[in-house]
Structures are given as structure tokens and as C-alpha cells.
């Protein structure tokens, strides 16, 4: 029942504490779990259920709704090639085919060395820089087949440290300093406006 490392458990409690209702921490905790082990294990989901006060089935329901959560092992680098319109107009299909050939796998699978998982993906909000792709959710723009080959070579280099492994998203975390924090309050426990608001005036406006 203990999936999270001590350090991450502490972090988990810090995250839960930011929300008026603990269940809101579900997705952040799933990310934290994925950061810890590269994918979301059953043990992780069980512990998250306990932490946010719901059943494992509910955690599974939420987890499986979102594409970024992997419920099986994936490569160190998940390479998502955008195939939506703007990228498709500028050669995304060809890029994906090239990637399949280069990596020797079909989209949706992982190379046997466990380094790369290749996926055809949807719009990545970089439409002007088509065709684009993401490696562990970090963008690469206007990618040509030779750019792709070069990228793969760089990533395959064991000394490459530029792109964190799959599961790690932001490498900077938000920390709310205790002395500055207002604190989250359960909505049932509040029924007055915040101090800077004078309700009467507002009702008239």
C-alpha cells in the first residue's frame, strides 16, 4: 500500500493541501506517480485513492480518461508526432512513416531497448511550426526526416541529459511559502465574501 517514496508522499500531502477538496489533487498525484515510476502502476492508483479519499475504481476512471497517463511501461522517451491538420498539411504523415522506419516500430509501440515509444498524436499547439513533435512533452519544431534522425541519435546518447525521462514534466515545482499562503478552505466552511469585498455595494451594482 505504499507506492510513493517518502519524499514524494510528503510532496503529495503538500499538493493535497492546496485544494479545498482533496479529490482535486487526483490528477497532480497521478502525474507525481508517473514521475516516480515512468508510468502509473496499480499500486500507485490504490494509494492515490486512499490519499484523496476515494475508491481505486474512481482513480482508474480518472486516470484512464487522460492520454498522458500510461498504465503500462513505456520508453524513456515518448515521441509524439502531431498528425492533426496543420501538421498533416505539411507532411506529418510522411514524418510519422519515417519515424516508424527509423525506429523500426509501429506507432503505439516501444523499441526493444526501452528507449523510445512512438505515438501519433493530436494537435500540440505549435501549428505554425509544422510539422512538430514532442519528446516527453517538450516541443521540436519544423521537423524534417533528417532532423528526426539527428534527434533520435542525440536522445539515444546515454550522456544526453537535456530531456528528462518520461514521467517528468515541469522540472520546477510550485512551492507556496507557508508564511505567504492564504490556505485552502473547504467551500462548506465559508459563506461570507472575502475581506476586500463589501457585499452590499456589490449587490447594488
Amino acid at each position: 500500500m505504499t507506492f510513493f517514496t517518502e519524499e514524494n508522499l510528503e510532496l503529495a500531502h503538500e499538493i493535497i493541501g492546496r485544494y479545498p477538496k482533496q479529490r482535486s489533487a487526483m490528477i497532480p498525484l497521478l502525474h507525481l506517480a508517473q514521475e516516480q515510476s515512468g508510468w502509473v502502476t496499480e499500486e500507485a492508483m490504490k494509494q492515490i485513492g486512499v490519499l484523496v479519499g476515494t475508491s481505486s475504481a474512481e482513480v482508474l476512471g480518472t486516470c484512464s480518461f487522460y492520454e498522458m497517463f500510461k498504465r503500462h511501461e513505456v520508453g524513456k522517451y515518448v515521441v509524439n508526432i502531431c498528425t492533426t491538420m496543420s501538421c498533416a498539411l505539411l507532411g506529418a504523415e510522411e514524418l510519422l512513416e519515417h519515424a516508424e522506419t527509423r525506429l523500426g516500430i509501429k506507432a503505439g509501440s516501444t523499441t526493444s531497448d526501452g528507449l523510445f515509444t512512438l505515438e501519433g498524436a493530436e494537435c500540440q499547439a505549435a501549428c505554425t511550426e509544422a510539422p512538430c513533435l514532442q519528446v516527453n512533452y517538450r516541443h521540436q519544431y519544423r521537423v524534417t526526416p533528417s532532423d528526426f534522425d539527428q534527434l533520435i541519435d542525440e536522445l539515444a546518447d546515454p550522456n544526453n541529459e537535456e530531456t528528462p525521462r518520461h514521467g517528468v514534466l515541469a522540472q520546477i515545482r510550485q512551492h507556496i511559502p507557508v508564511e505567504r499562503s492564504v490556505g485552502a478552505v473547504h467551500p462548506d466552511l465559508v459563506n461570507v465574501p472575502p475581506v476586500w469585498i463589501e457585499e452590499k455595494k456589490e449587490a447594488n451594482s
Binding site: H31, V182, W196
Partner: peptide, 19 residues
Amino acid sequence: GKNILGTELSVDIVLHWGA
């Protein structure tokens, strides 16, 4: 956070991301 710029305004902003 608490008492922004010394005023009564006190607001937390929580970064949250999707999946």
C-alpha cells in the same frame, strides 16, 4: 498570497495541469 502589496487582497494561485 496573504495581504498582497500590503492590502486586504489575499489570494492563492495554484498551478494545476491536465493530462
